[in-house]
């Protein structure tokens, strides 16, 4: 009864063509990067060993391992999280559970968008002016971590707010109706059910923080240190800056060394990201109501 008309058939083939075309373009976006990753693995992979990960650079950073940088990155991330996770979660709780739609809320949202949007080098200038000089922390892990923490604060805020808003409002109404205070409701019902979403955000923040370079260049990360940091007021080496240094600043570095550093850094970041994606998928699959 329905015959495909000439027009219909033409439309159909155009649609197919458009679909294929767009698919190809999407792949063009991804393929180069996969190629690049392959090159990183191919050139940097063979050099990576237990010793490479757990020994210090030698011979003016042209040989040896990356341990001080690896440890430094971990320290920077941990200190940044200690500061930014509580603040970020609290900010998200305020926005999701307390704030109503006022000019102040809009201003806070604008501030968060800008915290995320301001160039990393501007965060670096801020860290230098505020923490290194004004607060007197000097170039230190503390100053660098605070700078990183502020810069990645929006990641935690956005992830937490999303997971808080995914908790159905009826649960809050039910709790309030029982005479629970807002805080009791948040602590007993809202936060526990948003926890995995918050964790996703935190892992994402770890991955962001670990990869940043510019904000720590002038606030706490050193090109090279002959010893490991003893406390949070010491300087430290870091993976991201180490990659910059061995690939641009040091003459006579063997060709594969920067590839290995890059591979370790990328793996660190991507594993964290993948973990956060898997956790998110797992949480979505879990039925709690």
């Amino acid at each position: 009864m329905f015959q495909s008309t000439e027009l219909n058939r033409r439309n159909h083939s155009v649609q197919k063509l458009v679909s294929i075309l767009f698919g190809v373009v999407t792949c063009l976006l991804i393929v180069p990067v996969l190629t690049i990753m392959t090159v990183l693995v191919y050139k940097g992979g063979p050099n990576i060993s237990f010793e490479f990960l757990f020994s210090a650079p030698t011979n003016g950073m042209t040989a040896g391992g990356i341990f001080p940088a690896l440890l430094g990155t971990i320290l920077l991330v941990v200190v940044a999280l200690i500061f930014s996770v509580p603040l970020g979660v609290a900010t998200a709780v305020y926005l999701s559970e307390y704030a109503s739609d006022t000019w102040l809320t809009r201003l806070i949202n604008l501030a968060i968008i800008n915290l995320a949007g301001v160039p990393s080098i501007v965060h670096a200038l801020f860290g230098l002016g505020a923490f290194v000089i004004f607060a007197g922390f000097g170039t230190s892990i503390l100053a660098a971590s605070l700078t990183l923490g502020i810069m990645t604060l929006p990641v935690v805020i956005v992830a937490t707010r999303e997971s808080l808003q995914a908790v159905p409002p009826e649960f809050r109404m039910a709790c309030w109706g029982m005479g629970a205070t807002r805080w009791q409701t948040i602590r007993k019902v809202v936060l526990p059910n948003a926890m995995s979403g918050i964790l996703t955000g935190v892992i994402l923040e770890v991955s962001r923080t670990a990869g940043e370079t510019a904000p720590i260049m002038f606030t706490g990360a050193a090109f090279f240190l002959p010893f490991l940091p003893q406390g949070i007021l010491d300087q430290t080496m870091a993976m991201s800056l180490h990659l910059f240094v061995v690939s641009t600043q040091v003459p006579g570095v063997p060709e594969t060394l920067p590839y290995s550093v890059a591979l370790v850094l990328v793996s660190l970041v991507l594993i964290m990201n993948a973990a956060s994606i898997i956790l998110r998928a797992y949480v979505r699959g879990q039925k709690k109501w």
């Binding site: 009826e170 649960f171 109404m173 039910a174 109706g177 029982m178 019902v189 526990p192 059910n193 109501w289």
Partner: peptide, 12 residues
């Protein structure tokens, strides 16, 4: 005490 139209079992 309040009972709403749609039953709300808290996720506890």
């Amino acid at each position: 005490g309040v009972v709403f139209p749609l039953p709300v079992g808290l996720p506890l």
